[in-house]
Simulated assay, not measured.
Amino acid sequence: MSPNLPEAAIVVGGSAGIGRSVVDALLMRGYRVGVIARGKERLDEMAEMPNVFTASADAGSSAELDKAVDDLIEKLDVPTAWVNCAMATSFSSFMKIPAEEFDRIVQTTFLGQVNGTRAALRHMESGSIVNVGSGLSYRSVPLQAAYCAAKHAINGFTSSVRSELIREGSKVSLSLVQLPAVNTSQFDWARSRLDKQPQPAPPIYAP
């Protein structure tokens, strides 16, 4: 870390919901925060905030994400904290989800964390990486097959890479936070083929 500068953090999927709350928490703790997300309008708003640096990328694309990370690190410095929480979902029965939509949800929600972890380990020699999972990775629910599959995959991926880091004696820790039902904006903007407004299964928490 450069002398006289606060520690840096990067949040992938940090422009809304859980990610945005993580950004706010890191800022309160004195970090300079890099935010990566797809939504340019929200990123432009966040770029006006003190100690926030933004880059637009699809976390499901390793090439896009790597470029965004390289650009942010030039401005920020190498992070000591990194959070992967990009996600996508739709509310639909499995047979009504087109194959490309299913693939897209898995690509963003699962491969977004794979790509984020890889990018973090490419730069970080010490610090903490946190992947964001879900209680649905233990008990799946109907009408979110792609999302539940992706969250299950995150469990296996994170456990495997964590064991590698432990074996190597790495100074980078890899953690997985399993979230409960949280009232985020996904329930307003995610595609839904249901005849009612979807909501999390109670008890419901604020981000």
Rank of each mutant, 00 (worst) to 15 (best):
V114N: 06
V114E: 01
V114H: 03
V114A: 03
N115I: 02
N115L: 01
N115H: 09
N115C: 01
G116Q: 05
G116V: 03
T117K: 08
T117E: 08
R118S: 14
A119P: 11
A120I: 04
A120S: 05
A120M: 07
L121P: 02
L121S: 03
L121Q: 03
L121T: 04
R122S: 13
R122V: 06
R122G: 13
H123V: 09
H123A: 10
H123D: 11
M124H: 08
M124F: 04
M124V: 09
M124P: 09
E125A: 10
E125S: 13
E125G: 05
E125P: 00
E125R: 11
S126R: 15
S126N: 14
G127I: 10
G127N: 14
S128I: 08
S128K: 06
I129D: 06
N131A: 12
N131E: 11
N131S: 15
N131D: 14
G133K: 05
G133Y: 04
S134C: 02
S134E: 02
S134M: 02
G135T: 10
G135K: 12
L136G: 15
L136D: 15
L136P: 14
L136E: 15
S137Y: 00
S137F: 00
S137W: 00
S137R: 01
S140E: 14
S140T: 14
S140L: 12
V141W: 13
V141P: 07
V141A: 08
V141I: 14
V141K: 12
P142R: 02
P142C: 04
L143K: 12
Q144D: 03
Q144K: 13
A145Q: 07
A145K: 07
A145F: 00
A145T: 11
A146H: 07
A146N: 05
A146Y: 04
Y147G: 02
Y147D: 03
Y147H: 07
C148P: 12
C148A: 12
A149S: 13
A149Q: 11
K151G: 05
K151H: 06
K151A: 04
K151W: 01
H152R: 10
A153S: 09
A153N: 01
I154V: 14
I154P: 08
N155I: 08
N155A: 07
N155D: 06
N155C: 06
G156H: 01
G156C: 03
F157S: 00
T158G: 01
S159F: 12
S159N: 13
S160A: 11
S160Y: 05
R162E: 12
R162Q: 12
R162D: 07
R162I: 07
R162S: 08
R162G: 03
S163M: 12
S163W: 05
E164F: 08
E164I: 09
L165H: 02
I166A: 15
I166R: 15
I166Q: 15
R167G: 14
R167I: 09
E168M: 12
E168I: 06
E168S: 14
